[in-house]
Structures are given as structure tokens and as C-alpha cells.
Amino acid sequence: MEIGNGTQISEFLLLGFSDEPKQQPLIFGFFFSMYLITMLGNLLIILAVSSDSHLHTPMYFFLSNLSMIDICFTSTTIPKMLVNIQTQSQVITYGGCITQIFFFQLFGVLDDFLLTVMAYDRFVAICHPLHYMVIMNSRLCGLLLLVSWIMSALYALLQSLMALQLSFSTVLKIPHFICELNQMVQLACSDTFLNNLAMYLSAVLLAVVPFAGILYSYSKIVSCIRGIPSAQGKYKAFSTCVSHLSVVFLFYCTGLAVYLSDAATHSTHSSAVASVIYTVVTLMLNPFIYSLRNKDIKGALKTLCGMAAIKGTTVLGLKNFRVWRAKSLRTRKLWK
């Protein structure tokens, strides 16, 4: 993309949180530990679902896909930030910035769609339990996932192509730790009316509408739960929804906080802090919320850990046996 005077630009500067050298190791350790926890937690969910045949249901199919998307989402931003801190550099190339915006939008919208699909899945499971496996068949599950990917990719592609049309002045400093689309548009010196219009329309279509769908699904779920005669049945139905509701409100509330703090205070620092909650903390907490509130996931994780322990013991036993056998053969040769 070109600057106002026609010079080709090649890079942006991500200012991050602080320029103080003494704070850099603390920031690096903080984000690196959260990144590792996010990766490990979501990988365990994926392994637990894939290894236990009892979890090969639509609910856990979407959950494992959500975990995979969360891994990709956090990997879009945090590794680059860690590299910049480690190398004491704030530079991100123009191509790298556009690429980061594309994948950030892609996986962010995918998260949004999957949470909506999971709400519909819970609605069918609780309100129409006898027809659940007929309605939520493998074909429909695959179709819902495919449509979510296609719509997210088209949206991310549209926003990235529109960002490519922007022109910039000589000030190319992004007061953030990631290349966020809103921050990049604010730096442009060309007309950004279409960019802002696309962002606001997409916020309504891709955030407000799915959130309204989630609220509608759970209003129906609550009505169905109230009609269940036994207290045990009510508790079982409610407990299957608590994990998903927790993730939904955590995702939407922190995402809303990013835009409200930016619009209300115009503070880049508060916006960056809110973005950390939205893009890092939420994704880190998702596996804990699902595993701690879900007996099936906890059971699968215990089985997985047990299998790993047995395999480790078997491998160690074989290794010790081989060492003992080698020593025995050497001893026999010496006696001969």
C-alpha cells in the first residue's frame, strides 16, 4: 500500500504495552505462560474427544472444533508478540499485518458462529430429545461447520481486501500488541467511510444477530427445563448448558468491552488491556470451564491420563528389560 506521497510502505510498528526494558521479561513470561496453558488445555480437549468413542456426538464434535479454532486464534497474535519482545523489535511487515488481520477476523468470527451452533445443538438436545440424533445428524453437523468456515473466510477476505485499499501518512505506529483492523483504519489518511461502514454492519450481522440467536435458544431451553417434573432431570439439563453459557458470556462481554472502552474513553491502553481479555484470557479459560463443569470430559481426561501412564510404565519396563538382558549377555560372554 502507498503513503500519501506515493512512497511504498513496508512495515508498521506495534507499540505493545510498555517501552520499559525492565517490564519486557515480565510481559513475555505472562503471555508465554498463558499461551502454553491455552495450547495445552485445548489440545487435551481435542485428544479427550477423539480418544473416547462415547464423546463422538454432535455436542463434542463442535466442542473439539471450537478448541482447534481457539488454538489457531491465539496463535495468530501471541507468537509474533513474543518474538518482538524477545528480539526487542516492534516491527511487523505490511504483509504480515494484513495476514494477521485476515486470520484474526477469520477465527474470531468462527468462534462466534460455533458458539451459536452449539446453542442450537443444546436447544435441540433439551427441547427435542427424542429427535436429537435425527435432527443433528452427521450431515447437518458437517454442513453447519462448512457454512461457518465459508462465511468467516469471505468476511475476513472482504475486510483484508478493503484494508489493502487504504493509504497512510508517515505515522505508522499502531498503539496495540496486534494488528487490529480498527486501529489500522484509524491510521489511514484516505477515506475510510466504506471501511467503517463494513465494520459496523458486520458487527450487527456477525455479532448481534448470532448473540440474539443464542439468547433465543436459551430462552426456549429455560422454558423446557421448567417443564421437567423431576429435580434431578432439571439439574442434569441445566448442568449441560452452564459450561456453554459461561463461555458465551465471557466471549461476548469481553469482546463488547473492547469496543466500548475504545469508543467511550479513546484510551489505547484500556483498549489493549480489554483486547488481552478478549483474545487471550477467554481462550485460556475455555478448556477449564468445559472440563470442570463436564463429567464426560473429566472422565475422558482421566482415561487418557491413565492410558498415558500405562503406556509410559510399559515403555519403561521394556527399556529396563532390554538393559537387564544386555547386561546378562555381557556377563555370559565374560564367563565363557
Results as ranks from 00 to 15, higher is better:
Glu2Leu: 15
Ile3Leu: 15
Gly4Ala: 08
Gly6Leu: 07
Thr7Gln: 09
Pro21Arg: 02
Lys22Trp: 15
Gln23Phe: 15
Pro25Val: 12
Phe28Tyr: 14
Gly29Cys: 13
Phe31Gln: 05
Ser33Met: 10
Leu36Ala: 07
Thr38Leu: 06
Leu40Lys: 02
Gly41Asn: 00
Gly41Gln: 00
Leu43Gly: 07
Leu43Pro: 01
Leu43Gln: 04
Ser53Asp: 11
His56Cys: 06
Thr57Glu: 05
Asn65His: 08
Asn65Trp: 08
Asn65Val: 07
Thr76Asp: 00
Lys80Ser: 13
Leu82Gly: 06
Thr87Ser: 08
Ser89His: 09
Gln90Gly: 14
Gln90Ile: 13
Val91His: 12
Gly95Trp: 06
Cys97Val: 05
Phe103Trp: 07
Phe107Val: 09
Val109Gly: 00
Asp112Ile: 06
Ala119Val: 03
Pro129Glu: 09
Pro129Thr: 06
Leu130Gly: 14
Tyr132Ser: 13
Leu140Tyr: 05
Gly142Val: 02
Leu143Trp: 11
Leu145Arg: 01
Ile150Ala: 12
Ser152Cys: 09
Ala156Tyr: 02
Gln159Leu: 13
Ser169Arg: 01
Thr170Arg: 04
Ile178Lys: 08
Glu180Thr: 10
Leu181Arg: 07
Leu181Phe: 08
Leu181Gln: 05
Met184Gln: 05
Met184Cys: 07
Met184Leu: 11
Val185Asn: 06
Gln186Trp: 11
Gln186Cys: 07
Ser190Lys: 00
Asp191Leu: 05
Thr192Asn: 01
Asn195Cys: 10
Phe211Cys: 05
Ala212Tyr: 09
Gly213Gln: 01
Leu215Glu: 06
Leu215Ser: 06
Ser217Leu: 04
Ser223Ile: 11
Ile225Lys: 02
Gly227Val: 09
Gln232Gly: 12
Gly233Thr: 02
Gly233Ile: 03
Lys234Ile: 11
Cys241Ala: 11
Ser243Trp: 02
Leu245His: 04
Ser246Cys: 11
Ala264Cys: 11
Thr265Glu: 03
His266Trp: 10
Val276Glu: 01
Ile277Pro: 04
Thr279Gly: 14
Thr279Tyr: 10
Val280Ile: 11
Val281Asn: 00
Thr282Gly: 01
Leu292Ser: 06
Arg293Ile: 06
Arg293His: 12
Asp296Ile: 06
Lys302Gln: 15
Gly306Phe: 03
Ile310Asp: 14
Lys311Arg: 13
Thr313Trp: 07
Leu318Asn: 14
Lys327Glu: 13
Ser328Glu: 14
Leu329Tyr: 15
Thr331Asn: 15
Lys333Glu: 14
Trp335Arg: 12
Lys336Thr: 13
Lys336Ala: 12
